[in-house]
Every structure is written in structure tokens, then in C-alpha cells.
Design a protein around this nucleic acid. Structure first.
Length: 125
DNA sequence: AGTATGACTCATT
DNA sequence: AAATGAGCCATAC
């Protein structure tokens, strides 16, 4: 039995608009500390849309032209793999950004993933 | 307006 | 253990 909050049940600043989900995602992502990462699913779960990890990815896809900037490189899939690297300006940008923040990446995968994993449901509790 | 698709994840073969 | 199906719901066509 999955208990997903309906989209309409989310805290909305403007109920006539539906972009709130993206805004919430970006808000969470911006709070990820430097040198830490989280997953699409963790963010979805934190926002009460447990099964909507895909939408988080979608929000990332739309975040590049958003200000203030969203550190999208700190969001990976549940295996710690850089599933979104292909969507950055260059195929290596995501990896470079992460390594610049002290995260080790090898073969498109984050090393010590458990160690650097940052769960908003816990950290922002 | 209906269908297809996706930076995902989980349950079921 | 690997493959498949099913949810998720905003966009694109």
C-alpha cells in the first residue's frame, strides 16, 4: 500500500500554479552541503512524493536556466551513479564539479557513496 | 485530447 | 542475479 500525497496536497505558495513541485525540489537541492550528494528518490520522499523520483529528475532537467543556481551535480540515482551527466553542458562537467567539491568519482559512479550520502528526510527533519 | 517519453525506483518474474 | 512491469505526472508532439 503506497501512500502518496496527491500533488494538490503539497504545500503550495500559489495554488493556481503547479510549478511548486519543481520549486521545492530546487530548494532541497540547494541545501545539499558541498561535498555531499543525495538521490532523486530521497528528494521525492522528502517532498512526500515517494514514488515520483522521475519528476525530480525532470525538475533537474529544467533547473539549468533557474536562478539562483541549483547544484544539480549533487543529485544522483540510488546507486550513486551519475545518471544525469549526459544532460550537463559537457559530458564531463558533472564529474568535474563533484570532484572539485571533494567527491571521488570513478566510472560515472560516486565512491564512498554511503559516506557522502545526504538524506533530506533526515538532515532537514 | 490522446499518446509517448523520461536526470527514477520498487516489486515481481 | 538479471530482466520486466508498473507507478509516478509534467511536457512534447
Amino acid at each position: 500500500m503506497k501512500q502518496n500525497k496527491a500533488f494538490s496536497e503539497l504545500p503550495v505558495a500559489d495554488s493556481s500554479k503547479n510549478y511548486t513541485f519543481f520549486e521545492n525540489v530546487w530548494d532541497v537541492v540547494r541545501q545539499i552541503p558541498k561535498g555531499r550528494v543525495t538521490t532523486y528518490g530521497a528528494i521525492a520522499n522528502y517532498l512526500g512524493l515517494k514514488s515520483s523520483a522521475r519528476m525530480v529528475g525532470y525538475a533537474m532537467n529544467a533547473c539549468f536556466h533557474v536562478r539562483p543556481k541549483v547544484p544539480a551535480q549533487r543529485v544522483v540515482n540510488r546507486n550513486g551513479m551519475l545518471s544525469g551527466k549526459a544532460h550537463f553542458a559537457t559530458p564531463t562537467l558533472m564529474e568535474e564539479l563533484l570532484q572539485k567539491e571533494g567527491i571521488m568519482v570513478e566510472s560515472d559512479k560516486i565512491l564512498n557513496f554511503e559516506k557522502v550520502f545526504w538524506d533530506p528526510a533526515i538532515e532537514l527533519a
